[in-house]
Design a protein around this nucleic acid. Structure first.
Lengths: 333, 333
DNA sequence: AATTGCATAATGTTCGCCATAAATGCAATC
DNA sequence: GATTGCATTTATGGCGAACATTATGCAATT
């Protein structure tokens, strides 16, 4: 009973916000906006990110330590000569915060069947070595994503979503319903800037990026692309739905083997859809998007046989809205 | 500083869980399952609802006070002679818990423009007289529904979702994308029991229910119907999406005038779709559902002019996925 | 005139205790 | 033999104090 998996909230050197700001600022420097020598007034950055000057200064001090910016007493911060290169180097190592790490650990444990369907909070706290408050955060997040829910009395119940073999395919069928529809929303408008950004990313991938990027980065880019073109619909509910399903999909994709060849076709299709959207031919774009997503479903289905072999809990009743005799909504909190 | 709006968690006579159980049990008695005289073993009910006998006993004592069941010392509880009638009478007065009450108050305040776009937690606590923990619950719920989000530093920002004039129409367009697709899911299976329940409800409405039911009850029934037929798809992501959008829609519908005539056609269409589903003619059912929902969009659009008049904040940028330069995700909690 | 650097004030967050609710075991009773 | 009624044990929620973080005003400096 005394295991020591405890990832006990490592005492992160800088406060959370400052680190995020530092990463964001480094990102802009790395991207080439703000050439070396540029003065970085605290208020300007604060306004840009919607925070006060205080955390901005923390972030800048942090970046100064790393050599991305240069601090001049009483004059402020300036982009360092080698700032861009240093910033680019830093970009890769975006260490996840400790709580997210635990979150992913839980997801993996669940997918692998190492977590029972029903557990008490106390048991989870012991297993992952987190405080009450942290566990509450984790479980709230998980509940919001729909793979666990509070049981009527004490304890939590994990849904079978993550352990069902065709969950991944189901996420694609949801996207198949929403994404093409989003392109047909009245008032659809893809801003030229966003289109250009998407295009640049895809072209970068075709030009070798696919070979060098991490699997995680590849996934991330796909998500960004789809969320961008759906977001341009102006329908926040569709965008929200897509975001939500993507968060869960991330927990499922690891199962699917990453065949890098696949990404070349994907990138080309992404570009083709962008072309159509920029030409205002949304109906055709929607059709192309449907085909694009449909291809994945087909390929998933063909390799279903392979995955079926790996163990997991049986697909027990996923209780679909019992209408009457509603199963006691969990209490307030 | 000393206002007394404080809805300070009224000392609810029975604990939360017991009250919910009582309502659930009363519901079953009121529905006619369990005729008068039936013995109600605590363990049986406990198993049914997934809780222990303790709260079940509390609930039964509660129902005994109200005359729905009869307590016989050392023998247990039995459905009272007039149990069914008494239970039915009770069914209507499902008093919301105090926190939900505040939640709806916030939603109304927001829709009416009485809440600024950006507020601190302290301000909200004073306005609604809730404790820190309660406010956290409320805001988490609201954030999960997407109409507010934590700002980078301190404070919260309300999104424009609730104040945008076409939000309601957008929810319908999302449903239009999802619901027909759900009926076409492979493995779709509407269980006969649920179908029968839905049918009974709709027929009850046509047979006069529409005139007597409260507006709230009418809304609730519509939601139940749609969630039931989508739930039968077996795709939990689609069901989840529908549930989510329905929760928000509830906050928006009050704007739309409730023309009771409308419900007759609605009920008939619901029944027609059920017929098709039970006959396994899902493609036709999907088409009918599409028309059913499409009619609402059309009628909403026609009365848009009326609603435009009512004030509200201007539809400022709803920032659709800024792709690069991501706006600093709010911190952990 | 704008901006830095620091001090002060305002705002949230974490932690541990205690109150409360739920689960469980057991003897008495039907 | 199953079920009730109650006592005991276990689990969770709420609250406030101490702590950390962010916002903001102001004088000094460029």
């Amino acid at each position: 009973m005394e295991r020591e998996l405890t990832t006990r909230a490592a005492p992160h050197a800088p406060a959370g916000m400052a680190a995020e700001l530092a990463a964001a600022i480094a990102g802009e420097i790395g991207a080439g906006l703000m050439p070396p020598g540029t003065h970085l007034p605290a208020q300007l950055l604060a306004d840009r990110f919607g925070v006060s000057r205080f955390p901005v200064n923390q972030a800048l001090r942090l970046l100064a330590e790393q050599g991305v910016v240069r601090a001049e007493p009483r004059r402020g911060f300036f982009v360092a000569e080698k700032g861009r290169r240093t910033a680019e180097a830093l970009a890769g190592q975006g260490g996840r915060d400790p709580l997210s790490r635990i979150y992913f650990a839980m997801a993996e444990d669940r997918v692998a069947g190492r977590l029972p369907d029903s557990v008490s909070e106390a048991a989870l706290r012991e297993r992952y070595g987190v405080s009450k408050g942290q566990l509450a955060q984790l479980l709230d997040r998980i509940a919001a994503e729909g793979w666990a829910e509070r049981r009527p009395g004490y304890g939590w119940r994990f849904s079978s979503v993550l352990t069902t073999p065709d969950a991944l395919e189901q996420t694609y069928r949801l996207r198949l319903a929403i994404e093409p529809a989003a392109l047909l929303e009245p008032g659809y408008r893809l801003s030229p800037e966003i289109a250009a950004q998407c295009r640049a990313v895809e072209e970068h991938m075709l030009a070798g990026g696919i070979e060098t990027a991490s699997a995680d980065a590849l996934y991330e880019r796909g998500v960004r692309y789809h969320e961008a073109i759906v977001g341009a619909s102006g329908n926040p509910f569709m965008l929200d739905t897509l975001r939500r399903v993507n968060r869960i999909r991330r927990l499922l994709v690891y199962r699917s083997l990453t065949d890098r060849q696949r990404f070349y076709r994907q990138a080309r299709e992404h570009l083709a859809i962008l072309d159509l959207l920029e030409a205002g031919r949304n109906a055709e774009a929607a059709e192309a998007l449907r085909a694009h997503l449909g291809a994945v479903v087909t390929s998933l289905r063909s390799m279903r046989g392979l995955l079926e072999a790996s163990g997991g809990s049986p697909p027990i009743g996923r209780g679909a809205t019992p209408l009457g005799s509603r199963s006691l909504q969990s209490r307030s909190r």
